[in-house]
């Protein structure tokens, strides 16, 4: 059985490595809650490389404007057409931020339109229950003092499956801490990552 590898997309524009602790933290979370066969360390995969097709789940984040190269766009299209799952998180969490505007533009250009994902989608109950939809992050509530809460995640569908899951809730900040810190938290904020990955693996 092939192991699940948490892969982070490396793209040429912007800052793809803005949340370096997310992969080990999510791997730790998966190991805690599931018995999935996991690679103990994540992988970094260039978005324009054919090696992208060795990783059906890819995480992409950043703060800065995103402009895909033709090669990156082409590989991303191929990745999605063949059943890959891209999870994009805006490390800024604001509405009109540079990452959000450019990343959405690039995704819609390469893959297709992003639509609100209903908050009763099975993504929110495939492992942990999130009856209100995507969990709110600390940065949304008070991190930047704007109390801006995004009600929905966005998704581009490929058939009836999620091809691109887009969040501007800033999970990259929420999950970007050392795994050992979890023991000091009353509610583990990375639990939603388990749902994202279990959903990617089972649907």
């Amino acid at each position: 059985m092939s192991r699940f590898v948490f892969a982070t997309a490396q793209y040429q524009s912007g800052n793809w490595d803005s949340a370096p602790l997310v992969p080990p933290n999510i791997i730790d979370t998966l190991a805690q809650y599931t018995s999935l066969d996991l690679a103990p360390v994540g992988a970094i995969v260039p978005l324009g490389s054919p090696s992208l097709l060795n990783f059906p789940f890819v995480f992409l984040t950043g703060h800065l404007p995103v402009r895909f190269t033709d090669q990156e766009r082409s590989m991303l299209q191929r990745f999605v057409e063949r059943g890959g799952f891209l999870f994009v998180d805006d490390h800024n969490h604001d509405i009109d931020g540079a990452f959000h505007k450019t990343a959405v533009e690039e995704i819609e250009r390469a893959i297709g339109p992003l639509r609100n994902l209903p908050n009763n989608h099975r993504l929110y109950n495939c492992f942990f229950e999130f009856p209100d939809g995507p969990p709110t992050t600390g940065h949304e509530l008070n991190g930047w003092g704007d109390n801006l809460v995004h009600e929905h995640l966005l998704a581009t569908m490929h058939g009836d499956r999620i091809a691109v899951l887009y969040s501007n809730k800033d999970y990259s900040s929420e999950w970007n801490f050392h795994p050992r810190t979890k023991r000091f938290l009353s509610v583990d904020p990375t639990r939603f990552a388990v749902n994202v990955i279990v959903h990617a693996l089972t649907r």
């Binding site: 059985m1 092939s2 699940f4 809650y33 599931t34 018995s35 999935l36 066969d37 059906p56 059943g83 492992f127 058939g159 499956r161 279990v198 990617a200 693996l201 089972t202 649907r203």
Partner: peptide, 28 residues
């Protein structure tokens, strides 16, 4: 078990028109 093989076998069969029931283990 939940994994890429189970996922893509299910996807392939559904795309071929089969209706699929599934039980995919995630934890004990």
């Amino acid at each position: 078990m939940a994994g890429w093989e189970s996922r893509f076998v299910t996807v392939a069969l559904e795309e071929a028109g089969w209706n699929v029931d599934a039980r995919l283990g995630v934890s004990p």
